[in-house]
Design a protein around this nucleic acid. Structure first.
Lengths: 189, 189
DNA sequence: AGCCTATGTTAACGATGACTAACGTCCTCG
DNA sequence: CGAGGACGTTAGTCATCGTTAACATAGGCT
């Protein structure tokens, strides 16, 4: 009532449909009509809900990176020791990747279809998220310098975000496998 | 003289330029004129060397996946035992990713901008490459079933192919780090 | 009832961008 | 030397696609 609330349905519906389309064919490979068709309306009706096609992508990508960052921070804050924080970060990333394969794909692939402004915004969130990992990694293993920790974090993201490319296991088995492999990779640094 | 040989220079030059452009902006984000400009000629002159823009992408992607597959097979054949084969596969993938970050990026991102025919061709090579890994993994650790081995292979690819996203370490340090993490991840299965 | 807003629809418009045409130039080879 | 092919150039063409315009309709609020 106070600020802006109360209109979740249609926008969200469009966004998730767009995410799946983008994931499958790439941002430029999807037409405005395709997205409309996916939610039962046709073409330009989308402009009642979004200022432009780019605005959809922007909202998707900023949403993803913000959610990742926020979730990561929360898990770290809730942890007692560095090892616990690391484990929670791994679980968080695995959970996110497994539940949102389309978002992961779009996030990795279509970032540079964004306007400079939005791209900078997303990259900043990404950078902060990486720094969350770097800090935790270095607390867990003090001999690690920042550049190596950063590279390791990227590698672990790559490992976990491989989900959209495999996905032939059921969710819980996949989750277990990715967690184990991530911890194994980190332990080997 | 006999079959087709003898015209490497210009085509290759165009292909590597295109690869870099595609890696930076995505296949649809790059214009024919951009690619031309990158090699000093302008626009439609490219059609003296390629039948279409799609043909460039096709040649790039089939080239990559064929090289990966061939290289992988060779390393495995040259190895004495399963452990050795695994180590050689890891080294091969790391080496390839570190030396061809643009190719890796395009390979992961623009696959579905291909025609059905070409896409199928590339995917088949990819599948065979994965199977090379799966076989080696299962010989190295007989208790592993194929679905898990496949998922693990994809995860290791993701880990190693993260290179284009980090790259703040020098090549040899990065190579060492990725190899260690890959082996650690595999050991943790 | 009567209006206003939210939400659609279809029919243009305009830009972009891949591709082709028509035309030059040099290098090679008979 | 002179013809032909390899390689470029610039100026169209044509399709696609994002976006806007003009026009409906349905539901809530006064």
């Amino acid at each position: 009532m106070s600020t802006d609330a109360a209109k979740p349905s249609r926008r969200e519906q469009i966004l998730t449909a767009a995410a799946e389309k983008f994931a499958r064919a790439g941002f430029h490979g999807v037409g405005i009509d395709d997205i409309g068709a996916a939610v039962g309306i046709s073409g330009p009706a989308l402009y009642r809900h979004f200022r432009s096609k780019d605005a959809m992508l922007a909202e998707l990508l900023t949403g993803i990176s913000d959610r990742l960052l926020l979730g990561g921070k929360q898990r770290v804050d809730a942890a007692a020791d560095p090892q616990g924080a690391l484990d929670r970060l791994v679980r968080w990333q695995v959970e996110f990747a497994l539940h949102n394969p389309a978002l992961i794909t779009v996030h990795m692939r279509d970032l540079d279809s964004l306007s400079d402004r939005d791209r900078r915004r997303v990259r900043e969130s990404q950078r902060l998220y990486v720094e969350v990992w770097v800090d935790v990694l270095r607390r867990a293993r003090p001999e690690l310098d920042r550049p190596r920790a950063r590279a390791a974090a990227h590698a672990v993201f790559g490992l976990i975000n491989s989900t959209p490319f495999s996905a032939h296991l059921d969710t819980s088995a996949m989750s277990r496998l990715l967690r184990d492999m991530a911890h194994g990779a980190i332990a080997a640094i």
